[in-house]
Design a protein around this nucleic acid. Sequence first.
DNA 1: CTAGGGTTAG
Length: 434
Amino acid sequence: MSSAAYNRLHGLFKNSTATATATATGTGTSTAVSTTNKIVKEKTKRPKKSPAIPTATATATGTVVSRPKTENLAFEPLPMSQLTNSLANLKMFIDTFKRTSNTGPFRYSYKYYDDVVSHLARAKQHAYIEEILEHQKRYKTDMTKEAFVARLISLYGKSRMFDHARKLFDEMPELNCPRTVLSANALLTACINSKRLDKMPELFRELREELSIEPDEVSYNVVVKAFCEMDAIDSALQVADEMEKNGCECNLYTYNTILDALYGKGNILDADKIWDTMKSKNLDPDVRTYNAKLRGLIFANQITEAIGLLDEMKTKGVNPDVYTYNGLIHGFVKDDDLVAVKRWYAEMAANEIVPDSVTFRIIIPFASKKGDYQFGFELSKVGLLREMNVGRSNLQGVVDGLVKEAAVDEAKELVELVKASNFIYYKLKLSVNS
DNA sequence: CTAGGGTTAG
């Protein structure tokens, strides 16, 4: 889903309680419009006719457009914007979502479910998450496939609904779904994602002793992650030992998880020992391994070493990614070195690494802090044109700075750009104090 | 089913 669609959807959720009741008794004949306010205003208008929509989705009257099966099979997660645009309120969105679930390819689009559920979770609409996920139980054949149910467990976990995840796991036998270490791992991960680490030790024991599910390397990696989350890295290392004693090999997930924790605390010495361990096992570090170390070096203000590490990874054939460059740029921000930030931002482009919203969120406020509002202006434009969520306060900082420097035309240009973008939160005030 | 950076908005 694009960032723009994200913001529209999120805005929809925010206003959901108001609009849900306002339109509940209406005729439900709203046309496809782009903001919630407009939706409410135009709800009595008659739609001209059904809009041309490429796949099964809601029309303005809330019915489903049936398309030939072959087209449904070519489902792409594109209609998010259409769904959010054409819906008068959240309840309708949920109903449409449930109806659209009738097409198999839609149900198997993990990314789509993930997006919708995570936005619902952020908007604290847990009842709707339950509604969507419980709705899946009507697809009885799917519910007998463990991977499908594990996905739902995982989604509950990410929504911090551990009890729901647990309940679904318990229901699996009556859903005629085989229950193996795969769904057990999904449930263990749900402990972490729903911040219920307290549930983990008991659960781990229960899985093994009462359900006879033997942990595999994924299970151990989840436990390793859990201890790292609790800042108990020694315990994480003990689990790694235990895992090998039980016939599971530590892999990159294991070590990258531990390295992230160590470098995150600035513990470079212990982290280097992990690198030795990996080497002795012929386990080649990947981009995440290097990025973890890079972050550790930046944390310790060792910027020169960080640049050296970038060279090393290139030599070893590990391609740097946007995390690598963001980390490095973050280091130069810490170093208060705007010239270097600019150079490495350019270097990033030269290496064909596409900046992401974090890149802009790091650099733009720094440019403003250094008083280089022109650079902030350029970056803001790039970010907005790429439909990225650059951050309202970051944009405001640039606008204010431009105004302060009497660059009112540019300030206005930026404000206009913001207005034209689909980010409903970007309502900048042009603060001219004259 | 397992690992990453920075944190929105009335």
